[in-house]
Design a protein around this nucleic acid. Structure first.
Lengths: 232, 232
DNA sequence: AAAATAGTGTCTATGAGACAATATAGG
DNA sequence: CCTATATTGTCTCATAGACACTATTTT
């Protein structure tokens, strides 16, 4: 059984959630947008294949946090026949614009708004719409009770930058004052650097980093940074 | 690449969480306890393979709720070579004692306490200890914000039965009075049947069922039936 | 000074959890 | 009667969210 690995690579730029897509250089679905990915090699583990494929198609060695999303198929998802796909999710800070390579004719960040949800305008190759939707849902759920939102930020960041990540991923506005209190008072989340941000207008903001010794993966925020329950 | 499907089949009996294990009839790891499972056939989807393997090895057509857990490998988990395993999780009501068949020499329910956590006494075959641990963790997290705990109960059940499920899965005692209020007042969770339970001593309890039109999978309890945060 | 953003304090509504009190069964 | 379990009610504490207010910068 051929086994593929596909990646949902998410980042936050310009106030909204973006996903890294490639334009397929080969049939099937040549010319369509798709998640980066490819076939698992013999003697390779899943996560290693995910990193290798991302690097081959985009020239990027993934920073951020990589985790398994779920597996799909193998039937009715690739016209060539049964292919089992194991999807991975990468929480990435915005890094250098990627370089197309491998099976990819072009690589670009795309606004998630245009691809998933009610206002979607573009169709992805294979069953990648479903995989993307699952990845977004996972990201939305996970930043609530884990420190993973910080994986979208540079190593040192302001509370406002962190808040804009939550706002982009959840697609809603958060009260800056309540968010500030919540984020800074949640134990085991942030650590002050002592430095101040010099950017922009208004009072300078303190710079924070992830708390020492936090693996963004395992740590659990308790209580969680609660996502608003009702429409705001 | 050979692809296997393994199942973590959980149920609640006698006040504690149990998992269905087979004794391997064949090498490798012959004689060891293992999760039921086997190889994916050509032209078969993952969830279908999970159901088929469970039926072959235990004679059971799974009631309850089946969901994908995650994938493992393919390296360093089977002495025969690389095998990708996709694990599934089944929330099962206690049903008829299973019948061994296929690759299984014996099939039995085992107390999860004896297998996972600090007091574990038995080792499972392959990497099934890890898979079991992940399945238990998923179950513990999921019954908090989904109606899935009811999948461990018969179609009609009392609040006390439902509470004992939560207590078994979470491994802690819950206040019967607070639990009763919480469970019955959570919208979209339970529905009264009008019938009463005749069992046991004390005042008879009302029988409930899952609310109409709930797919236990998709529904989200809001607010969740919160798991106690601190040790009780 | 005005505008903008950072950060703190305060109030209210809601839910979790402790626990009193009542209801209904069997012995 | 007593005991056991079901079910309801009440109280307290903690947290989410609304929002007034102060602090510090740029224009």
């Amino acid at each position: 059984m051929p086994v593929a690995v596909d990646l949902v690579v998410l980042t936050v730029t310009e106030g909204s959630l973006h996903v890294l897509l490639v334009e397929r250089a080969l049939a099937p679905d040549k010319g369509l947008l798709a998640l980066p990915g490819g076939f698992l090699l013999a003697h390779e583990n899943l996560a290693d294949a995910a990193r290798r494929e991302l690097c081959e198609e985009t020239g990027i060695t993934p920073p951020g946090h990589l985790e398994q999303l779920r597996s799909y198929g193998p039937l009715n998802r690739d016209p060539r026949g049964p292919v089992l796909s194991v999807a991975y999710l990468l929480f990435a800070p915005t890094f250098a614009t990627p370089q197309a390579g491998g099976d990819a004719a072009a690589v670009q960040w795309h606004k998630v708004e245009d691809l998933a949800g009610p206002n979607a305008t573009t169709r992805l190759a294979f069953d990648h719409d479903q995989i993307l939707a699952d990845g977004i849902e996972r990201a939305r759920a996970k930043i609530e009770y884990s420190p993973l939102a910080a994986a979208f930020c540079p190593p040192e960041f302001t509370i406002a930058e962190l808040r804009s990540v939550y706002e982009a991923v959840w697609g809603c506005r958060l009260d800056p004052r309540n968010f500030h209190r919540k984020a800074t008072k949640t134990v085991g989340f942030l650590e002050t650097t002592g430095k101040m941000s010099a950017e922009g207008v208004g009072r300078p903001a303190a710079l924070y980093r992830l708390a020492e010794g936090i693996s963004p993966n395992a740590a659990i925020l308790d209580p969680p940074l609660s996502r608003p329950r009702k429409s705001q």
